[in-house]
Design a protein around this nucleic acid. Sequence first.
DNA 1: GCCAACGTTGGC
DNA 2: GCCAACGTTGGC
Length: 141
Amino acid sequence: MAYWLMKSEPDAWSWDQQVGRGSKGESWSGVRNHTAKLNLMKMKKGDRAFFYHSNIGKEIVGIVEIVREHHPDPTADNGSPWVVVEVVAREPLKTPVTLETIKSTPKLKDMSLLKYSRLSVQPVAAEEWKLICKMGGLLKS
DNA sequence: GCCAACGTTGGC
DNA sequence: GCCAACGTTGGC
Protein backbone atom coordinates (compact mmCIF):
# COMPACT_ATOMS: atom_id res chain seq x y z
CA MET A 1 0.00 0.00 0.00
CA ALA A 2 1.22 3.48 -0.82
CA TYR A 3 0.84 6.59 1.28
CA TRP A 4 0.11 10.15 0.17
CA LEU A 5 -0.63 13.62 1.39
CA MET A 6 -3.33 15.80 -0.12
CA LYS A 7 -3.69 19.49 0.59
CA SER A 8 -6.87 21.46 0.78
CA GLU A 9 -7.60 24.95 1.94
CA PRO A 10 -10.33 24.46 4.54
CA ASP A 11 -12.15 27.48 3.07
CA ALA A 12 -12.55 25.52 -0.15
CA TRP A 13 -12.89 21.94 1.12
CA SER A 14 -12.39 21.02 4.75
CA TRP A 15 -11.92 17.81 6.66
CA ASP A 16 -15.34 18.31 8.28
CA GLN A 17 -16.93 18.51 4.84
CA GLN A 18 -15.07 15.37 3.80
CA VAL A 19 -16.34 13.56 6.92
CA GLY A 20 -19.82 14.81 6.11
CA ARG A 21 -19.71 12.99 2.79
CA GLY A 22 -19.49 9.72 4.70
CA SER A 23 -18.99 6.56 2.70
CA LYS A 24 -20.10 8.32 -0.49
CA GLY A 25 -16.75 10.05 -0.54
CA GLU A 26 -15.79 12.95 -2.74
CA SER A 27 -13.93 13.53 -5.97
CA TRP A 28 -10.61 15.26 -5.42
CA SER A 29 -11.07 17.79 -8.21
CA GLY A 30 -9.27 20.92 -9.24
CA VAL A 31 -5.68 19.68 -9.42
CA ARG A 32 -4.05 21.71 -12.18
CA ASN A 33 -0.40 20.84 -11.74
CA HIS A 34 1.25 18.08 -13.72
CA THR A 35 3.39 16.72 -10.90
CA ALA A 36 0.35 16.50 -8.66
CA LYS A 37 -1.62 14.91 -11.48
CA LEU A 38 1.03 12.21 -11.94
CA ASN A 39 0.75 11.42 -8.26
CA LEU A 40 -3.03 11.14 -8.55
CA MET A 41 -2.51 8.72 -11.42
CA LYS A 42 -0.21 6.54 -9.32
CA MET A 43 -2.78 6.12 -6.57
CA LYS A 44 -4.36 2.70 -6.18
CA LYS A 45 -7.63 1.76 -4.58
CA GLY A 46 -6.97 1.17 -0.89
CA ASP A 47 -4.05 3.60 -0.64
CA ARG A 48 -4.17 6.02 2.27
CA ALA A 49 -3.58 9.74 2.31
CA PHE A 50 -3.18 12.40 4.94
CA PHE A 51 -5.66 15.25 4.67
CA TYR A 52 -3.74 18.49 5.17
CA HIS A 53 -5.26 21.90 5.78
CA SER A 54 -3.18 24.51 3.99
CA ASN A 55 -3.20 28.24 4.77
CA ILE A 56 -5.61 27.92 7.68
CA GLY A 57 -4.49 25.51 10.35
CA LYS A 58 -1.46 24.24 8.43
CA GLU A 59 -1.84 20.80 9.92
CA ILE A 60 -2.60 17.19 9.08
CA VAL A 61 -6.07 16.56 10.42
CA GLY A 62 -7.14 13.16 9.17
CA ILE A 63 -6.71 10.10 7.00
CA VAL A 64 -8.61 9.33 3.82
CA GLU A 65 -8.71 6.20 1.70
CA ILE A 66 -8.60 6.14 -2.08
CA VAL A 67 -11.80 4.38 -3.13
CA ARG A 68 -11.71 5.02 -6.88
CA GLU A 69 -8.65 5.38 -9.05
CA HIS A 70 -8.06 8.22 -11.47
CA HIS A 71 -10.59 9.24 -14.09
CA PRO A 72 -11.13 12.51 -15.98
CA ASP A 73 -11.83 15.58 -13.88
CA PRO A 74 -15.43 16.61 -14.60
CA THR A 75 -14.61 20.19 -13.59
CA ALA A 76 -11.97 20.50 -16.34
CA ASP A 77 -12.50 21.19 -20.04
CA ASN A 78 -13.24 18.26 -22.30
CA GLY A 79 -10.08 16.71 -23.64
CA SER A 80 -7.91 18.19 -20.90
CA PRO A 81 -5.43 15.91 -19.13
CA TRP A 82 -6.66 16.56 -15.61
CA VAL A 83 -7.88 13.72 -13.42
CA VAL A 84 -9.56 13.09 -10.08
CA VAL A 85 -9.59 10.24 -7.61
CA GLU A 86 -12.32 9.60 -5.06
CA VAL A 87 -11.57 9.61 -1.37
CA VAL A 88 -13.46 8.64 1.77
CA ALA A 89 -12.66 9.93 5.27
CA ARG A 90 -11.33 7.10 7.43
CA GLU A 91 -10.33 8.59 10.75
CA PRO A 92 -9.31 11.89 12.29
CA LEU A 93 -5.97 12.34 13.99
CA LYS A 94 -6.58 12.57 17.74
CA THR A 95 -4.03 15.35 17.77
CA PRO A 96 -3.51 17.22 14.49
CA VAL A 97 0.13 17.28 13.45
CA THR A 98 1.09 20.83 12.54
CA LEU A 99 3.55 22.01 9.93
CA GLU A 100 5.53 23.56 12.77
CA THR A 101 5.83 20.20 14.49
CA ILE A 102 6.84 18.49 11.27
CA LYS A 103 9.52 21.11 10.67
CA SER A 104 10.95 20.60 14.13
CA THR A 105 11.04 16.80 13.82
CA PRO A 106 14.41 15.73 12.38
CA LYS A 107 13.08 12.46 10.98
CA LEU A 108 10.55 14.38 8.90
CA LYS A 109 12.92 16.94 7.42
CA ASP A 110 12.94 15.24 4.02
CA MET A 111 9.17 15.25 3.63
CA SER A 112 7.87 16.58 0.33
CA LEU A 113 5.69 18.89 2.39
CA LEU A 114 8.82 20.83 3.35
CA LYS A 115 10.81 20.37 0.15
CA TYR A 116 8.08 21.06 -2.37
CA SER A 117 5.82 23.30 -0.41
CA ARG A 118 3.56 24.13 -3.33
CA LEU A 119 2.86 20.58 -4.44
CA SER A 120 -0.72 19.74 -3.51
CA VAL A 121 -0.60 15.95 -3.96
CA GLN A 122 2.56 14.26 -2.81
CA PRO A 123 3.91 10.88 -1.71
CA VAL A 124 4.67 10.05 1.93
CA ALA A 125 7.29 7.46 2.89
CA ALA A 126 6.10 4.53 5.01
CA GLU A 127 8.35 5.53 7.93
CA GLU A 128 7.05 9.09 7.78
CA TRP A 129 3.50 7.79 7.70
CA LYS A 130 3.98 5.64 10.79
CA LEU A 131 5.68 8.37 12.73
CA ILE A 132 3.01 10.95 11.95
CA CYS A 133 0.25 8.49 12.89
CA LYS A 134 2.00 7.95 16.19
CA MET A 135 2.44 11.69 16.73
CA GLY A 136 -1.24 12.14 15.88
CA GLY A 137 -2.27 9.75 18.62
CA LEU A 138 -3.25 6.84 16.41
CA LEU A 139 -2.16 3.30 17.07
CA LYS A 140 0.07 1.93 14.41
CA SER A 141 -1.78 -0.36 12.06
C1' DG B 1 -0.23 42.02 3.05
C1' DC B 2 4.17 40.42 1.59
C1' DC B 3 7.14 37.52 -0.74
C1' DA B 4 9.70 33.18 -2.16
C1' DA B 5 9.16 29.36 -5.07
C1' DC B 6 7.86 27.85 -9.17
C1' DG B 7 4.87 27.01 -13.27
C1' DT B 8 3.19 29.11 -17.59
C1' DT B 9 3.01 32.28 -21.36
C1' DG B 10 4.60 34.81 -25.10
C1' DG B 11 8.03 37.82 -27.52
C1' DC B 12 12.16 37.41 -29.78
C1' DG C 1 15.13 27.68 -27.27
C1' DC C 2 15.81 31.47 -24.06
C1' DC C 3 14.08 34.39 -20.74
C1' DA C 4 11.23 38.24 -18.86
C1' DA C 5 6.74 38.95 -17.28
C1' DC C 6 3.16 37.35 -14.87
C1' DG C 7 0.01 34.30 -12.08
C1' DT C 8 -0.64 31.08 -8.25
C1' DT C 9 0.40 28.66 -4.01
C1' DG C 10 1.12 28.80 0.54
C1' DG C 11 4.03 30.12 4.60
C1' DC C 12 4.95 33.95 7.41
